[in-house]
Design a protein around this nucleic acid. Structure first.
Lengths: 209, 209
DNA sequence: GTCTATACTCCGATAGAC
DNA sequence: GTCTATCGGAGTATAGAC
């Protein structure tokens, strides 16, 4: 986010932040403190402006939150899709799934305040804001369902697992890392390997060695 | 919770709720609506009393939330420990783990507004309230670590998985069901079986059939 | 134990000057 | 684009009657 619109940069006022800057700051605060604890006054203070000035850029607090939520899904969606697309066309199912898991965790834990803010505050925002975010979410969920279905049809995944439920389990497990992930105890990439190991092969010691 | 203290029941005022009743209602509202959306006025209204009357039973809103959070962990802790203790002494690792998973999901999804409220609002409450809940949480986490370590020492679990990380992954995955679980699509017990299947054996189609 | 009444704080939002 | 000033509402909490 906050990619500079290089056009029409010659304006009179040189705000240190601008609309995208306010969004960046809001996303960071929402990720750090949750929805209820972040007031427009806090956002404004962190942005170096006054609360009333926020309304030049946004019509309401809901509008800010909605923008943060949508961007959060878009970032992780593109991250996941790009990671899978970048693989060789003949990559096997395990490789594909590992890449998707790594991309999701990277966006969530390393890259994006927007994605982590979305995961953290989605359950705290007003119903109308949640509803507005749903189409974007559905698209990302469909991407996962499509990927998992393909792997199952190729015979890489067990036939008896329901795709929707598997996606809910997988994304839910990955998103839960936000509550305890500590980069000092290991990178997001290393964590993604552990998740892939567990989901792919389980934790039971197998007798057939 | 709200177990009636059968002693000294002969009092003058016959409140329909009492302290435990207020707690029950608060837990349900927190589970349904989250922390920020539930005011003392809402709790009082649901309890059939006025907001000011809450302060006869509790010193502050934080005190209510803290009581709900502690009870939530205690319920799921006892549920899990009882389920494991009730097994035959010679139950194998897989059986033990399945029982623990089922007990956790039952408490979360079927039985207790306190447990579900805890999972839902823990990340939304003031830091001081979170801190107050930590000892109770640590005890439950230690119960899981003890169980998982025992299974690993018995050779039931793979040797290369870190117990703490495994516990975080497992509890996180189970708790995440709260966001999407729908009893119309299958029972909590059935869901617990799917989680056990995935965590124990993974989702990869195995060639050694 | 519950009521009414109220103090105090903070919030989202608006109006108008610059 | 940002400022100051302010409105109306809702929140937690307290005091004192019953």
């Amino acid at each position: 986010m906050a990619q500079n619109t290089a056009s029409k940069v010659n304006e009179t006022s040189r705000s240190a932040v601008g609309r995208d800057g306010v969004l960046d700051i809001a996303a960071r605060l929402f990720r750090e403190q949750g929805y209820g604890s972040v007031s427009l006054r806090k956002i404004a203070e962190a942005a170096g402006i006054k609360a009333g000035s926020i309304y030049y850029h946004f019509g309401s607090k809901d509008e800010i939150v909605a923008a943060v939520l949508d961007a959060g899904i878009q970032v992780v969606h593109e991250s996941m899709r790009d990671a899978v697309t970048a693989l060789p066309a003949d990559a096997d199912g395990e490789t594909v799934l590992r890449a998707a898991i790594r991309a999701h965790l990277r966006a969530l834990l390393d890259v994006s305040d927007y994605t982590s803010a979305n995961v953290r505050i989605f359950g705290q925002v007003p119903q109308s804001v949640r509803d507005a975010n749903l189409p974007t979410r559905r698209a990302y969920e469909a991407e996962w369902d499509s990927l998992l279905s393909r792997l199952q049809e190729d015979g890489a995944l067990k036939q008896d697992v329901d795709i929707r439920r598997l996606r809910l389990m997988l994304i839910g497990a990955l998103n839960a890392t936000l509550d305890w992930f500590d980069p000092d105890r290991g990178s997001a990439d290393a964590l993604s390997r552990t998740y892939a190991d567990v989901f792919l092969n389980g934790i039971l010691q197998r007798q057939d060695t």
